[in-house]
Computed example of a mutant assay.
Amino acid sequence: MIAIPAIDLREGACVQLVGGSYAEEKVRVDDPLEALKQWRRHGFGTFHVVDLDAALGRGSNADAIFQLTAFERGLTFSVGGGVRDTDRVEAVLAGGAASVVVGTRAIEDEAWLAHIAQAFPGQVMVAADVKGREVVTRGWTAGSARDVRDVLAALEPLPLGGLLVTAVHKEGQLSGVDLPLMREVASTSRHRLYASGGVTTMGDLRALAAAGAYGAVIGMALYTGRLDASAVAREFAG
């Protein structure tokens, strides 16, 4: 399993939010490149970038994203947040991302998802943001009335690059991961599982690896120093 630092963008800065709430911003790094450089120094080579403003229709951090993906050859980026049309999918991939993460429209428009998955096989990741068991959309502000198991079944035939499953109820709270959820996803889907939400300790990472996760996205625990970044990179950097 690989550990993947999160670089969440808001108003041009790198931030960490508690529970995805804009009112609960706990960490801010004014220059996202500084965050990237910090994680590179520890040995990380794979990163997950999210445009929070685009996800909520409040703006775009496209320039900052391009600066990140163009910083150093050989790094691997997944990029998401507000990717809701084919032109944006193409732009993200052309801009240097290895994979594009689609959430809201992927959940709401299965025909469109099938189209882009076929057009870019292995480069499209679907974000299944889960609160309790319901998959939520639109920057975690809207319910889909769909159970995560039903969503997984619909995604199974597609040539995806993976599933990014975020336990929204754990996000940013440093309270541990939703291991039963991640075990269920790993055991029921053939797609690579990238687990997110609540990673707090090395034990959490080892448990996710044992559960079958391919990757784990880490935010708050790294930015606050709760996790020793060098120790994580030594054991799990990809």
Rank of each mutant, 00 (worst) to 15 (best):
V50H: 03
D8S: 03
E108T: 11
G225C: 09
A195S: 13
G161W: 00
E110H: 12
T46N: 08
W112E: 05
P5W: 11
M1R: 10
R133F: 04
L179C: 07
V89H: 03
H169F: 00
L33K: 11
L152H: 05
K131C: 07
T137G: 11
T224V: 08
V79R: 06
G219S: 12
A70E: 07
Q173V: 02
S189E: 02
V148H: 12
D228P: 03
G238K: 15
V49G: 13
S99M: 12
L158W: 03
L152M: 13
A213F: 02
A106S: 06
V102E: 07
K37D: 14
P5L: 09
R234L: 13
G215Y: 01
V100K: 03
W39T: 01
H42Y: 15
E11P: 06
D85C: 10
Y214Q: 00
F44C: 09
V49D: 11
D178E: 01
R234T: 15
L68S: 06
I116N: 01
P159Q: 06
M125F: 09
G12V: 09
G82V: 14
D129T: 03
A62R: 02
A35E: 06
E171V: 00
L113W: 13
A23C: 04
V49K: 11
T137C: 10
A154R: 15
D31I: 12
D178K: 01
F71E: 07
G132C: 13
V101L: 08
D109M: 09
T200H: 07
A209I: 00
S60A: 11
P32S: 15
A117K: 07
G103T: 04
G132W: 14
G219I: 02
H42L: 10
A127W: 08
A119S: 12
D129L: 08
G80P: 06
F236I: 06
I107A: 07
T200R: 13
L181M: 08
V177E: 04
A3I: 00
T141F: 00
A127C: 07
V89F: 02
P121W: 04
A167N: 09
V124S: 01
L164P: 08
V177S: 01
D147V: 08
L160F: 00
V151L: 15
L160M: 00
G172F: 07
G198C: 04
G219M: 09
A97M: 12
T69F: 06
L179D: 10
H169T: 02
Q123F: 02
D85N: 14
A128R: 04
A23G: 06
K170Y: 05
R138M: 02
H42W: 12
L164W: 06
A106P: 08
V18E: 15
M220L: 02
A6R: 13
L75Q: 05
G82E: 14
T46K: 07
G212V: 05
L174S: 13
G197C: 03
L181A: 08
G139R: 10
S230Y: 14
L68G: 02
G57I: 12
V124K: 00
T137H: 12
Q67F: 07
R192P: 00
R73Q: 14
R192A: 12
D178Q: 01
A94C: 10
G12P: 11
R206I: 01
V79Y: 12
E72G: 11
R149V: 13
V185A: 04
S175V: 03
